[in-house]
């Protein structure tokens, strides 16, 4: 699980172009949206694509993303439980 969390942090930084943010600066339970990393609605769509492309997980309802993408912890738990 810790490897998956590290991998997610690296992917988020690279795919969402988070310049000047390092893996060490993202705590596992930091909010990804709002006051945390400050991701926006387009980033949420990118994360949905990432789940599909890299982990074979298709979200039937994009609204599910709200809970799944709360933090690295919640993302990793969801991927572990649903990975194809």
């Amino acid at each position: 699980m810790s490897n998956l969390k590290l991998e997610l942090k690296e992917k988020i930084i690279e795919q969402l172009n988070l310049e000047d943010v390092s893996v060490d600066e993202i705590a596992d339970n930091d909010p990804l949206f709002g006051d945390g990393l400050g991701l926006d609605s387009i980033d949420a769509l990118e994360l949905i694509v990432m789940l599909d492309k890299d982990y074979g997980i298709k979200l039937a309802d994009p609204k599910e993303g709200r809970k799944i993408f709360e933090s690295i912890d919640t993302m990793a738990a969801y991927i572990s439980a649903n990975k194809a």
Binding site: L16, I42, D43, L45, V49, D52, K53
Partner: peptide
């Protein structure tokens, strides 16, 4: 087929 929303906009 993985269109990027961030590129599309």
């Amino acid at each position: 087929y993985y269109p990027s929303p961030a590129v599309f906009v």
